[in-house]
Simulated assay, not measured.
Amino acid sequence: MSRTFFTSDHHFGHKNIIDFESRPFSGVEEMNAAMIESWNSVVAKEDKVFHLGDFSFLNRDKTRAIVERLHGYKVLILGNHDRGRSRGWWLDAGFDEVSEHPIVYQGFFFLSHEPMYMNKHMPYVNVHGHIHGQKYEGKSYFNVSVEHWEYKPVPFEQIRDSVAADEEQ
């Protein structure tokens, strides 16, 4: 049975992100290899992964080489660092689907790169990235940036159960 996962902000090939976000890697090659291994440790080939942006700073061939190594059917929602490249560029780099806009998942979860404005009366949850190690307060936001999740994609069930637990409080 396939599962669905969410993740964001890998910044493959981005040397400066190691210092910017205090990532525990000595260099880009180690970071890239560790993140591929972390992804594949939880995602099976038949699973679906929504990547919520800022995937790679590498050229198309190097990006494609990484995408090909990652398990799952991969959907990219373009992040601020991805938008300089066309939707076709990302499809050619190996993504199965690419969206330039947020996606509504199961009628309740807004999937976006940047956090969206959510007032306390909106009965939805914004699954997002972009803010890396920071966290928005409140039950309306769920940050899937890799820094919060040991560089592993987050299973949908974990997000759903976390939101349900917040509502019970």
Rank of each mutant, 00 (worst) to 15 (best):
I36L: 11
N126T: 10
L58E: 14
E97T: 07
A33G: 11
G138R: 12
A65P: 07
M116H: 04
H121P: 00
R85N: 14
E29D: 12
D92R: 07
R60I: 12
P102L: 06
H81R: 09
I77P: 02
E68G: 10
Q106P: 07
G138C: 08
I18G: 02
P123R: 11
H128N: 04
V125I: 11
S112Y: 05
I66W: 06
H128S: 04
R69Q: 15
R69L: 12
G84W: 07
V125Y: 06
P123S: 10
S140H: 08
D61E: 14
S26I: 13
E37A: 15
E46T: 06
G53R: 06
G53Y: 10
D9F: 06
Y124Q: 14
G129N: 10
M116C: 03
E137N: 12
E46S: 10
V75S: 03
Q106F: 06
L76W: 07
F55I: 07
V75L: 01
H130Q: 02
G88T: 09
M122V: 03
M31T: 00
M118C: 05
H128V: 02
G27K: 02
D96Q: 00
M116W: 00
K120H: 02
L52M: 10
H11Q: 09
F55V: 04
G129K: 11
G88N: 12
I66M: 09
P123E: 13
L58V: 11
Y141E: 01
L91A: 03
V104Q: 08
G133Y: 14
V75E: 00
E30I: 01
M118P: 01
G133F: 11
E137A: 15
G79N: 03
S26R: 13
Y105E: 11
V43I: 02
E37V: 12
S99M: 01
R83T: 14
V42M: 05
D92W: 01
I17T: 05
V104F: 15
E37N: 13
E68D: 15
D92T: 04
N119A: 07
F50L: 09
M118E: 02
G107Q: 08
M31A: 00
W39M: 13
K74R: 09
H121N: 14
R83C: 12
G88A: 10
E29V: 01
K74N: 06
R83I: 12
E29H: 02
G53V: 02
G88L: 12
S99T: 02
S38I: 09
K135V: 08
H121W: 09
F109T: 12
F12Y: 13
P123V: 12
V43A: 06
W89L: 05
D47P: 03
W89Q: 05
L78N: 08
S41N: 09
M122L: 04
K48V: 11
S38P: 07
G88C: 03
V42P: 03
N119D: 15
H81K: 09
L91R: 08
V49P: 01
N59A: 00
G53N: 08
H81L: 05
S26N: 12
Q106D: 14
S140N: 02
K15R: 15
A34K: 15
I36H: 14
G94S: 09
S41E: 14
N16Y: 10
F50Q: 05
N32E: 09
A93H: 11
